[in-house]
């Protein structure tokens, strides 16, 4: 499956190149930015497109080559969301942060091209696929809004937020593949598809706390499961972090003591426990779905 999926990255990449090259309604300026942003993204691989392919391939009797276009369309939507997210977070890792006002147009073009591409394929159930794309994209945008507002400050509301923001996009990718093959979607695929996004988001949240750099959620006064756990403690470190979060003026944090409390006080372990709960939920749902063992192996690795 690993070799097959590597080949799949290449096929999706080729389809993206063709989509960008053949879009007649954009000019040279926009096209060259689309190409360059796509190139930056290609290094990371196309996990969402692969989820779509994996589910289409699992449920279809006859493989339609247009599935690579659909996988590419999903990746266009994901890239547009990544660009907007980075611009909102003022993340300067990628070239799209250099001229944000132009990058916004690239993201908008990608978003429109995504649904248009699916609509122009030959699949019988393409209209349901477009509806799924729009519904889940809206759910994700709603989650992103809640995330930006930084108002999900307890475990339940935080999990609901990442369910919408991240879970929607992974569920969408799985369901579009399934619906194009079968004409209908299943509750099991929707559930584990969503859980994959939640699991990956919790892992990202833990990673963000590993270094004391500009992306550290705690330094940025953001909320995530380990931070919610830390703030719920009653000790000197949690009091200092609470003061840091509540004060507008510049403040000091003892990095070593805070890191020690995160890693040895249960905060990271708590986040890992919640992630594990979703892993087991996802594995249970996957058991009830008729996907090949190779496909299941791939999905299980995303659930770790």
């Amino acid at each position: 499956m690993r070799g097959l999926l590597k080949g799949l990255d290449e096929r999706i990449n080729e389809s993206l190149d063709i989509l960008i090259e053949n879009e007649a309604l954009i000019g040279h300026e926009l096209r060259s930015m689309l190409k360059s942003f796509k190139e930056e993204k290609s290094v990371l691989g196309y996990s969402f497109g692969k989820l779509c392919y994996c589910h289409y391939e699992a449920f279809t009797d006859c493989l339609d080559e247009d599935i690579y276009k659909v996988a590419a369309a999903i990746e266009l939507l994901i890239l547009s969301f990544d660009i907007i997210d980075d611009l909102q977070d003022k993340d300067s890792d990628y070239s799209w942060s250099t001229i944000p006002e132009l990058s916004f147009n690239v993201a908008l073009a990608m978003l429109v091209m995504a649904s248009r591409t699916i609509r122009e394929t030959s699949f019988e159930h393409k209209n349901i696929a477009v509806q799924i794309l729009e519904d889940y994209a809206l759910r994700s945008i709603n989650g992103q809004q809640l995330d930006l507002l930084n108002i999900c400050r307890d475990d339940q509301s935080y999990i609901q937020m990442i369910d919408q923001k991240s879970g929607s996009l992974t569920a969408m990718s799985c369901l579009i593949g399934e619906v194009l093959a079968k004409g209908e979607i299943s509750h099991e695929v929707e559930e584990y598809g969503k859980y994959i996004g939640i699991i990956q988001q919790i892992k990202n949240d833990i990673q963000s706390l590993k270094t004391w750099g500009p992306k550290n959620d705690l330094l940025n006064k953001r909320y995530s499961l380990p931070i919610i756990y830390l703030l719920a403690q009653k000790n000197d470190v949690s009091n200092a972090v609470t003061n840091y979060y509540n004060n507008d003026k510049a403040d000091f944090l003892d990095n070593n003591a805070t890191e020690n409390m995160l890693t040895n006080g249960g905060a990271i372990r708590y986040a890992i426990t919640v992630k594990n709960v979703y892993k087991f939920k996802a594995l249970n749902k996957l058991e009830d779905v008729a996907i090949s063992e190779l496909g299941k192996d791939y999905l299980k690795r995303l659930m770790k």
Binding site: L44, G45, S47, Q200, K203, I206, Q207, I268, R269, Y270, I272, T273, V274, N276, V277, K279, F280, Y298, R301, L302, K304
Partner: peptide, 18 residues
């Protein structure tokens, strides 16, 4: 899920998510 979290084996780098 709890006991696995206390097992000390923490794999945060999912190779598959690439």
């Amino acid at each position: 899920a709890i006991l696995d979290a206390f097992s000390g084996v923490i794999d945060l780098e999912s190779e598959a998510w690439k």
